[in-house]
Design a protein around this nucleic acid. Structure first.
Lengths: 231, 231
DNA sequence: GAGAAGGGTGAGCCCCACCTCACCCGTGTC
DNA sequence: GACACGGGTGAGGTGGGGCTCACCCTTCTC
């Protein structure tokens, strides 16, 4: 194994108490190096430019739009994003990962799993929490979240399906698909399916959770279960 | 001023990251002494009995029933309770304080304000966050929260008003009041207005927030604004 | 020009939470 | 016995969010 250089981590601004815990956790791990803390989300591009951190941990609740994740991953593909949200639901995580995030974790995640996620993300693996709340429970930033139906339409738009094809797949009318698409565009701040089709981070998917250490890699089919693997 | 003995603080179990931050914050304050950490809510009575801490900081999200707060404050009046919730609403905080909690703070509260709240609570002051989310946003444990109307009925029940009097005050029928009362009893785990009328913690109300240090004491009328000041 | 997309508006429907009220019953108090 | 209270059940009404679909328009591409 070559010389171990520490993984550089940038920390966004979090709630004060959680930020303290997060910083202390990461600084106490010899394999990790904090290069920035309490970075306001508006300053993330600058910090990414200056430090090119391997991993950045962001507050999903501080995202004004989910599309921010998308923009960051496109602009700075070398920096893997880990999103911390308030008990995120499965679909919320799916949306964040579809936009290029490398991990989506609840703020109640065990410290050990947070560290695991950092190492996994730095190796270009994507991390999905095991114990996400089922479906109900609108959390995250609360606003501008895709509905269940919109979340079904999104991946089909991302892979370039036509409205008619989507309508056929979902067994609804074309007009309905167009309505969902409009809603998605508005919420995500884009104006066409082409803008949605950017290259999300690739990589295997791992699942972490309290029971123990990360398991074996999951088959690629699991990536496609939540949303298609890309155009 | 007499010899300064540190204020003893018990910490309930929190999300791992937040718990780290909270513990580190409090342990770094020379005026505070942590006597217990990561206390499961089921073990709170035991810990209160053993250490009789001046202040205990609890996770509002871990409360099975809001009535737990009430029971703890009645059983252990010497221990002041500080509740941390996920962006609590005004009515949530009002309910918690009505049940004897000394403070209700968001988990995004500034460290400085958390320390302030501990000191204020230990001096039998009640602390209300300044920047609470308006009305919408069901957070907290999510379940068994009083509705807006129930929250209006509760204080009137607590001061022993009859159903007819409440009906008159709220301009609704007696049957409606009885329905609200039933709902309140069920959610709070009590079975009469007498059980609701127990002695909540008394004390002045302070408001804390980011702008600066705590202001002057608020007039008692402010206590009565959210709910009557007791029988 | 035809067809697909994107953008705006609005309608109808369903589900759910909340509010309101009306019954039923039993108990305790005066 | 009259009355208030607690407990159970259910019926309406209302409001919001989501899903579905139907129009209207412009733009772009082939």
């Amino acid at each position: 194994m070559p010389l171990k250089t520490p993984i550089t981590v940038a920390l966004a601004r979090f709630e004060d108490l959680l930020g303290r815990g997060l910083r202390q956790l990461i600084e106490s791990d010899p394999g990790l190096e904090v290069v920035a803390t309490e970075v306001d989300h508006s300053r993330l591009p600058v910090v990414f430019q200056a430090h090119a951190p391997d991993v950045a941990i962001l507050d999903a609740g501080a995202l004004a739009r989910l599309a921010e994740v998308r923009e960051l991953t496109i602009e700075h593909p070398a920096t893997k994003l880990i999103l911390l949200a308030n008990s995120p639901s499965m679909s919320e995580c799916a949306q964040l990962l579809a936009f290029g995030a490398s991990a989506c974790l609840g703020k109640d995640t065990q410290s050990r799993d947070v560290l695991n996620a950092i190492y996994l993300a730095s190796r270009n693996l994507r991390v999905f929490p095991r114990a996400v709340s089922a479906e109900p429970g609108p959390s995250l930033s609360g606003q501008e979240l895709l509905t269940r139906r919109e979340a079904e339409v999104l991946p089909l738009l991302q892979i370039g399906r036509s409205n008619a094809q989507i309508a056929l797949a979902l067994q609804v009318g074309v007009e309905t698909v167009r309505t969902h698409a409009r809603s998605i565009y508005r919420k995500l701040g884009v104006s066409s399916r082409r803008e949605l089709a950017g290259p999300p981070a690739r990589g295997l998917l791992r699942e972490i959770g309290s029971p123990g250490l990360p398991q074996q890699d999951l088959p690629p089919s699991l990536i496609a279960r939540g949303w298609p693997a890309g155009a």
